[in-house]
Design a protein around this nucleic acid. Structure first.
Lengths: 134, 134
DNA sequence: ACGTGATCGAGAACACTTCTCAAGTAACAC
DNA sequence: GTGTTACTTGAGAAGTGTTCTCGATCACGT
């Protein structure tokens, strides 16, 4: 049986309140700073649950942290992520889907899954970077 | 100044001897089992160097380990990786390259890099899995 | 051969994640 | 409302992978 606890709600809420990917640690300290005495272990558990049930997407940052995000759709999709501010845009990639399947099949691979994420600098951060580089 | 040490050579050699991606830890114990008293820290350093100079590719496994591989080309390319035996096939993905650039540009992103890797079961492992599932 | 500074290695330090287990509490039956 | 029960929580310990520290070592240019 799954129980509804305010902790779980808090995690989901904090995730929803965020536009981009956030690390479990960041989420934990964000919750703490709003006064929630929620435990780190609980945050990890809640996030794993959400990811499990498809309510959240997870990916690994290049630094090795696990990042989570509440996604607007349960469908398979990919992300365009600003490496500076974390802003995330959901993108569809039918072309890539078929390409991945094709390549896998051609090489005799089955059960193909793929990791496709694009990191970059969003328009805002590009402008900021250009200004500060002056 | 860069010095040539047998340790560095050993790491490069061990990497070359391997078809697929290997973790730093695996590489270290492989070297140890051949009698090299090389230190773990050195393996990490050598791998980081190789990755830096483009002599090796690195990626993060879904389990969070850093995997390394000596690649036959310095050109930008992607991988099709067997999640069971580690067999790796290098794949070209011009279509994906342009797609990634396109998507990034359309959303105002600059300096776009992308992570594109396909995990699956190679033909051999598929057969083995099917046989053992019987 | 010599001097110098890059490199090595062992273990400590670190960061992130998962596990443990006693205490707390939501959900259900009555 | 009360009681029961099993799921959930939280603090800290444990685990895992990676990086750092620092004295010792050794490759390279002279």
């Amino acid at each position: 049986m799954k129980r509804n606890t305010w902790q779980r709600e808090a995690v989901r809420g904090a995730l929803d309140a965020n536009d981009g990917f956030v690390s479990a640690q960041a989420l934990h300290s964000a919750l703490h700073s709003t006064g929630s005495p929620i435990g780190l272990a609980t945050v990890y558990r809640a996030l794993a649950d959400l990811a499990d049930t498809g309510d959240a997407d997870s990916l690994q940052s290049p630094e090795g942290e696990s990042l989570y995000r509440a996604c607007s759709t349960n469908d398979h999709h990919h992300h365009l992520i600003c490496r500076n501010c974390g802003l995330t845009v959901e993108i569809e990639a039918d072309a890539v889907e078929t390409w991945a399947k094709d390549v896998a099949a051609k090489n005799g691979f089955t059960a193909a899954a793929h990791v496709v994420d694009v990191f970059g600098l969003c328009a805002d951060c590009t402008a900021t970077a250009a200004a500060s580089a002056k």
